[in-house]
């Protein structure tokens, strides 16, 4: 696969560099910091899982990267450097040229992504026509190929179908195909399999894995489901209350979570503790966006909190890509470093 990226020469630079990103919403009752100083990088061809519970700001990170924040929301601070250019403050016209071509997005609900009044084939070729001049026959052929690769049976017929004639799984496959049409270097997928049945989800995850090996596309896979990303991603970013609280490779985070929140999240997954009489649970619930919490935002729910935690913890880099935002990271002495995950 040839690299179509215009900055293929500068491969050592990450594809996407987000620095100090803060997205605020102004409401009657004050400013809501939906995203509060988020830093991360996405490498070329890397799949990064952005994990968090509802209200953690994970979706807003994706929207902020694409400049999809509408008033009363705004990007209050930070940089989104994609292929060498800062996207924050870029005029809408230039962002439009980027969206769907260099960065695309897949949303949770395919029915709101697809137009109900247009056949699949036309919607798909429109995506190509918006960004490049391609003869119609070639464009349709390209769409058919991609639908086929995503496991859609008889793609020729499906090109003539309307969205309502497809099942939920098929619609989401169409949306993923549309996101890939112009060979973007980054796809932001926001809970794309959450609304689907497990068997359909398993199929789609398998197809996405194959396609990404073929195309080398980078993914930000936004989800609340740690099990899903563990089967797909290279690296994880764990978000809580608008901040990244922990990041690292999938293996290290799942085997040795350091942040009490990550640890609690993993422990409360039923299959992780089949024998415990009660599931270990995180007390309380996530603060609603807009509620200011002094110091560490997880402090009110944390069993390890001390007075130190009244200060704001930084995202401390430990080694390589491993980082944690905590004064009391939970180094586990009982479970030695587990390399065996492969």
């Amino acid at each position: 696969m040839q690299d179509l990226s215009p900055i293929a020469a500068t491969h050592r630079e990450p594809l996407l560099k987000v620095r100090g990103l803060s997205t605020h919403f102004t409401t009657v009752s004050g400013t809501v910091q939906a995203v509060d100083g988020v830093d991360f990088e996405i490498g070329h061809g890397e799949v990064v899982g952005l994990v968090g519970e509802s209200g953690s700001g994970k979706t807003m990170v994706g929207f902020s990267i694409l400049g999809l924040i509408d008033p009363p929301g705004r990007i209050a601070a930070g940089k989104v450097v994609f292929e060498g250019n800062d996207l924050v403050g870029l005029p809408e016209r230039e962002l439009r040229g980027l969206r769907g071509r260099r960065i695309s997005m897949v949303f949770q609900d395919p029915l709101t992504t697809l137009s109900p009044t247009m056949r699949i084939g036309r919607q798909m070729t429109n995506v190509i026509a918006a960004h490049q001049a391609m003869p119609m026959a070639d464009a349709r052929q390209h769409c058919r190929d991609l639908l086929g690769k995503l496991g859609i049976p008889s793609p020729d017929e499906r090109m003539h179908a309307y969205p309502h004639q497809l099942s939920g799984g098929m619609r989401q496959r169409v949306c993923i195909a549309m996101a890939m049409l112009n060979r973007p270097s980054l796809i932001i997928a926001d809970e794309p399999t959450t609304a689907l049945d497990v068997t359909t989800q398993a199929q789609i995850l398998g197809e996405v894995r194959k396609l990404r090996e073929e195309t080398g596309t980078s993914f930000i896979w936004v989800t609340h489901d740690l099990a899903v990303v563990s089967e797909l991603a290279d690296r994880l970013l764990v978000m809580y209350a608008g901040q990244i609280v922990e990041q690292g490779s999938v293996e290290t985070i799942l085997n040795r979570p350091l942040h009490p929140y990550t640890k609690g999240l993993l422990d409360s997954i039923p299959t992780n503790n089949p024998d415990a009489k009660r599931l270990p649970q995180i007390p309380g619930s996530a603060p609603p966006p807009g509620i200011g919490i002094e110091g560490c935002k997880f402090r009110p729910r944390c069993g390890f909190a001390t007075d130190t935690c009244l200060d704001k913890p930084d995202l401390k880099i430990l080694e390589g890509t491993r980082a944690v935002r905590c004064f009391h990271p939970q180094y586990d002495v009982e479970h030695p470093l587990t390399e065996a995950m492969s």
Partner: peptide, 23 residues
């Protein structure tokens, strides 16, 4: 099929999907 399709933490990322077709 159903048990196989459930994503599991710690399962190999190369896990192949056995289920075919649609409901």
């Amino acid at each position: 099929t159903l048990l196989d399709a459930v994503p599991k933490i710690g399962r190999s990322r190369a896990h192949s999907v056995k289920v075919s077709g649609e409901r």
